[in-house]
Design a protein around this nucleic acid. Sequence first.
DNA 1: TAGATTGTTAATCGATTAACAATC
DNA 2: TAGATTGTTAATCGATTAACAATC
Lengths: 212, 212
Amino acid sequence: MSKNESISMSVIRRLPRYYRFLSELDEQHVDRISSTKLAAIMNVTASQVRQDLNCFGGFGQQGYGYSVSQLRTEIRNILGLGNQYRAILIGAGNFGTAVARHLDFQKLGFELIGCFETDKDKFGTPLGSLTVTDEEELESFCASHRVDAAILCIPKQNVESILERLYRLGIRCYWNFSHYDITAKYSDTVVENVHLSDNLMTLCYRMNNRNI
Amino acid sequence: MSKNESISMSVIRRLPRYYRFLSELDEQHVDRISSTKLAAIMNVTASQVRQDLNCFGGFGQQGYGYSVSQLRTEIRNILGLGNQYRAILIGAGNFGTAVARHLDFQKLGFELIGCFETDKDKFGTPLGSLTVTDEEELESFCASHRVDAAILCIPKQNVESILERLYRLGIRCYWNFSHYDITAKYSDTVVENVHLSDNLMTLCYRMNNRNI
DNA sequence: TAGATTGTTAATCGATTAACAATC
DNA sequence: TAGATTGTTAATCGATTAACAATC
């Protein structure tokens, strides 16, 4: 399925965007598209589109372009969105609940199978199809369920101790909303960080330096 | 204050991270630090630290290093975190409320001064120090308040119409949690996008391609 | 002064863009 | 076939790293 020889992160991070645009075109029943047209819609160069796609295979056809639905499916497979990786949520605060309620995990390659909290007052609260559970039950839960990834929606100072437990339980993949640097301590992990405050500061900088 | 000649986005996006680490060191009462040591803590190269900082000025001293508190303040000023830009939140759903409650806007260069919703059931609900307001009052609100930025926490399909109003009201800076491409339509805007689902798909890819 | 460490230039590396032969 | 458009190589551009003279 692939010419895989270590694809650069620049390319990988563009894949979800291709997937989104192709999904939209597919919904609009567009059958085929050329790299030039797709590039125009996405506001990138046609060269980049062709280079990116060719990291994974020759999905197009000379003189014709790309089949939208086929290319969409290819990228879906490349991203592995059919895997339904089993994830647990750590922290049912503002962000944890928003993430759990708002995102369509199924469509994004995941299944949310548990939600853990330290705050007693929240135990038993329903959260979508889940129930907020005492964090102390983490070990017993993981003994009876395969868990592929953990979503960390807790403050930085609480991460160290819980991470130690998660790591001991064999969890190596993390979606991290905290500022704790996971890979620094555990180098054999796969981590995607979401640093909203960094993003907001960047906006501040750019507002501040508008017209320069 | 600066050697400003269009700093690259790569450098800009690293600034908040420097700021975070320097703030931590400052809290730990570390007086001075060399580029080598800072680089080690941040897991980057000393060259990059020095190159990055020198985009904005010579903050260090040969043979000594950098004063932590001074450098922190410099970066704070470069980011413009003292500006208290006035922002309004559009959409008081899961994400909007999480963002409003969870982030310390003051420390990030902003002041959240309003929150607008279309769902009648939510009007009047308190949200931190704010109250959820009918979106129809947007125009009258902006007539009596300076608004520097809008935070869009609404689904893609609702963005187009509200954006038209926000733009007409003179708002040019956006923190965008939707998948609507703002700059495509309004090229004179400053936009930072947060695409959580793209991020999660990237995690899926990386989990899928672990050990390759 | 000698040692340390910056600021800055030069070298390297990687990513993006351009060009075009291959081919549908 | 002629036209269109890919896949891919080569050229360019930008970002990162290395090196070192300047200097505290």
